[in-house]
């Protein structure tokens, strides 16, 4: 178990790792490149040729109306659904996920809309869920509580997440704190890519601001983020690039600094014709 503490140093350690794949041409080489992705469920064609590139260390927003294929795309990217056609390249190599475990192996972590924290477990156990540090070997592995508690504090303070007591159960936390813990967990283990599915959908104004600040800090730490959001203002605030899906196809790709909320809304509804296969 010598590799686990090293991985546990998380965000700061992950940053150089995600870049050293292409140190020279980091502008060009995308972390994830999806081309012509198709997925159907019976007669429902959820994805009909989606193209998407995620630049390393950037926050990419994924927009689209209900049924545009956002969730299906994310599920293909996290190994839940195998795509029917098209390819997913990860750091230039074509990959095929057979299960969510495969995606996790590559350091892809997801923050779900419905949180995914265990309320009756303390914060530190949630942060280390399925990544527990242990001592001993073979069938006699004991949880290394001390290290996990200490490093949980480090993980949270590095991301400036305000949780006074990591030994308290998640049940005692506010909605914003919970979402921040869930994101911190994903960022810590998602060494290459963190996918967030509407992370602020259920939060109040102040809590939303805290989560957005956290996303900014992830960018500063060079974590690649794919952000699914319905909130145009939020996308304009936190994302670098926005992709719009419409009826299972990529309708447009826009640099956030060169677009407006109105244009994005138009692209989503189809009022503005996209430049498909951007």
């Amino acid at each position: 178990m010598t590799d686990t503490p090293a991985r546990a140093t998380g965000v700061s350690a992950a940053a150089p790792a995600s870049q050293d794949a292409a140190p020279a041409d980091h502008v060009v080489s995308p972390l994830v490149e999806i081309t012509g992705l198709r997925k159907s469920f019976g007669a429902v064609h959820a994805l009909q040729g989606v193209d998407l590139k995620l630049a390393p260390g950037e926050v990419t927003a994924l927009l689209g109306d209900n049924g545009a294929g956002k969730s299906t795309l994310v599920r293909c990217l996290t190994g839940v659904h195998p795509p029917d056609a098209g390819e997913i390249r990860f750091r230039g190599e074509q990959i095929r996920f057979h299960s969510p475990d495969d995606a996790r192996q590559l350091g892809i972590e997801t923050v779900f809309q419905t949180l995914g924290l265990i309320e009756d477990l303390p914060v530190w156990q949630n942060l280390y869920l399925n990544h527990e540090l242990t001592r001993g070997f073979g069938p006699f592995q004991l949880l290394d509580k001390k290290s996990m508690i200490a490093q949980s504090r480090a993980i949270l303070s590095r991301l400036d997440v305000n949780v006074p007591n990591v030994r308290a159960t998640v049940r005692r936390m506010s909605g914003g704190q919970r979402q921040c813990i869930a994101i911190a967990r994903a960022a810590n283990w998602g060494r290459t890519l963190v996918i967030m599915d509407e992370p602020t959908a259920a939060l109040g104004v102040r809590e939303t601001a805290a989560v957005e600040e956290l996303i900014d800090r992830l960018r500063e730490a060079s974590v690649t983020v794919l952000l699914i959001s319905h909130d145009m203002a939020q996308v304009l605030r936190v994302a670098d690039t926005a992709y719009v899906l419409r009826r299972g196809q990529t309708a447009a790709r826009r640099a956030v600094c060169a677009t407006t909320g109105d244009e994005l809304v138009g692209l989503i509804t189809g009022a503005v014709l996209g430049d498909a296969h951007a």
Binding site: D101, R104, T114, G116, I118, E119, D120, L121, L129, N130
Partner: peptide, 12 residues
């Protein structure tokens, strides 16, 4: 027992 969906979500 606490949250089976969340447990499945983190790969348990």
């Amino acid at each position: 027992g606490g949250n089976i969906e969340a447990a499945r979500g983190v790969g348990i």
